[in-house]
Amino acid sequence: MASALTSVVVGAKAKHTATVVFLHGLGDSGNGWSFLADELSGLLPHIKWILPNAPSRPITLNAGYQMPGWFDLTGLDKSSLKDEDQKGMLASVASVNQLIRQEVDDGIPANRIIVGGFSQGGVMSLLTGLTSEYKFAGIIGCSCWLAMADKMKSMGSDANKKTPILMCHGDMDSVVQFQFGEESANRLKTYGYDVTFNKYRGLAHSANPAEIQDLAKFIKDRLPQE
């Protein structure tokens, strides 16, 4: 059974008709991305934000020390990323799906839900969105890469084959290299997915106002107020 996740929840300011689930990066928490919900709540008052907290786990990249993480990482070079903690990834997918199922049970249709994330959380949002049986309004992956890339053509569910995907990446990212994000977006395009890949000049492993603006537009276009 999937482990239950705790979450930072920022409620809708008006009638709740849509939800964004946004997953943080390694070593962070839901609070680390609450600024996004706070910043966009005026523009998107009908949206509830769920910002899950990853469980604490030993991270090989961090000498085995415990820290919040969606899966283990041995390194951030190309060969290390191929050494994937698929068991950890799939366990986290199950936990995120549990949150989404609760939203659907509470009356928010899956096509009024966007799943997104940053860095490790972006890896998880792509993996969750592409394999879910729920048809989402959109999928967002920031400063991340496509996990299980070689398997995704067969793993991907039919539900989100046409779902718009927004991927964003700074070209000065020294943590998750820009080329990893770009190659991932291109791989998804060859699989037939509807991917927009945005490049941000001079941006390191973080977000900037231009990216936040692009996220806001994508969310508003995909989840208009009813």
Rank of each mutant, 00 (worst) to 15 (best):
G181K: 00
V8G: 02
I113D: 01
S3M: 15
L203H: 05
Y191Q: 13
M124A: 06
I100H: 01
H46C: 03
M1Y: 11
K153F: 11
W33T: 02
R187K: 15
Q66W: 07
P224M: 00
L51A: 11
L76Q: 03
I47E: 04
G129Y: 02
L40S: 02
E226N: 07
D38G: 11
I50Y: 05
K161L: 12
E103I: 05
I140S: 02
G170C: 02
S7C: 15
M155S: 12
T190K: 12
I139P: 00
C144N: 09
D28W: 02
S92Q: 08
M172N: 13
L5Q: 06
L40N: 03
D85C: 08
S7Y: 07
V9S: 04
A204F: 12
A4S: 14
Y200Q: 04
G64W: 13
L5F: 12
K135H: 12
S157M: 07
G11H: 14
N208M: 06
L127V: 09
E133D: 13
I212P: 11
K135P: 00
G75F: 13
V10E: 09
A159T: 06
F178N: 13
D105C: 04
D72N: 15
G116I: 00
Y65I: 13
T196H: 09
H205Y: 08
N53H: 15
F180T: 13
R112W: 03
I139M: 03
K189C: 12
F22I: 07
L51N: 08
L203F: 07
G107F: 06
T131M: 15
D173K: 06
N97Y: 07
E84K: 04
I165W: 02
S92T: 10
D173I: 05
C168M: 10
D77F: 09
